[in-house]
């Protein structure tokens, strides 16, 4: 079970004067159960990249394989790909439309053609997974608070029981506690249900805290692909492409420069704390 990008390129308006290469020669393999962070400057092509994963954009050249099947084959079932690879867009609350939260969450499973019992089972399961209180089910989604709306929208995608879940900046605009809630529920989905997670984020700190692998995109190319520690070693190069390393990584470099014998690869507060304490012999 995997998603494979084989020399994928994507151009906007190919063949016209407005031609614009958004992705160029992307080779990528995403295995089952991974937790991947995608980082890249605004306009680097990361949104275009994820929209290829469930066939919302079609590559101008190259092939994408889902579980070994070429998704551009004429007999490939695109509808089932979209239920297998769920996608939570940026500001997903902007897609809510149901008269009640429950009705909205049912939209995806209904489109999958499931029977009524299965639909409501999945809807309630999804609402529970995002920790939305049950009494909010019959409320209009437009009456929820910002954070609750976001959760309801995510539930709408989870209800389709995707085996891969892509989230495009799911914490944008939320306050710190709201951010932690969303990230933790994503982590739960990954750990409890074994869902493959692909998280697009602008926050290097969040990426460092949660993901196992980082794919860094720059100008439509994959610039780095590795564990957070490996990728954040290149903090100077990351800055050149408009990104950065987590704040603690910079601190560790500052300390090293100040003569401390510390490991500069720390990317989380916990790692930094332990490393500094080790340095002081505590």
């Amino acid at each position: 079970m995997s998603i494979i990008f084989d020399h994928v390129a994507f151009k906007y308006n190919p063949g016209t004067t407005y031609e614009n290469t958004a992705l160029d020669d992307i080779n990528l393999k995403i295995d089952d159960g991974e937790f991947i962070g995608i980082i890249g400057h605004t306009g680097s092509g990361k949104s275009t990249l994820i929209q290829h994963m469930n066939g919302l954009e079609k590559a101008t050249s190259g092939t994408i394989y889902y579980n070994g099947q070429d998704i551009y084959d004429s007999d490939f079932d695109m509808a089932s790909l979209r239920t297998e690879v769920g996608m939570v867009f940026q500001y997903p609350e902007n897609q809510l439309f149901g008269t009640t939260v429950y009705e909205d969450v049912c939209f995806g499973p209904k489109n999958q053609g499931l029977d009524g019992k299965e639909i409501s089972l999945r809807a309630f399961e999804a609402l529970r997974a995002v920790h939305l209180p049950e009494e909010l089910c019959d409320v209009s989604p437009f009456e929820l608070s910002g954070g609750q709306k976001r959760k309801a929208a995510i539930a709408g995608v989870i209800a389709m029981k995707p085996s891969v879940l892509i989230l495009d900046e799911p914490t944008a605009g939320l306050d710190p506690a709201g951010r932690d809630e969303i990230l933790n529920l994503i982590k739960e989905l990954h750990e409890k249900n074994g869902v493959t997670i692909i998280l697009v984020s602008h926050s290097m700190e969040d990426v460092a805290n949660y993901v196992d692998r980082i794919v860094c995109i720059d100008k439509g190319h994959i610039k780095y692909d590795g564990t957070p520690r490996e990728v954040f070693k290149n903090y100077k190069e990351l800055e050149e492409i408009g990104l950065s390393a987590p704040q603690v990584t910079y601190l560790m470099h500052d300390l090293k420069r100040a003569g401390f014998h510390v490991d500069t690869d720390c990317i989380t507060i916990e790692e930094a704390r332990n490393e500094i304490l080790r340095c002081f012999g505590i």
């Binding site: 919302l56 979209r82 996608m87 902007n94 897609q95 389709m160």
Partner: peptide, 13 residues
């Protein structure tokens, strides 16, 4: 365009 894509991702046609 964005909303359309988001609903398509939820299986809408």
């Amino acid at each position: 365009d964005k909303i359309m894509k988001a609903q398509m991702a939820r299986g809408a046609s």
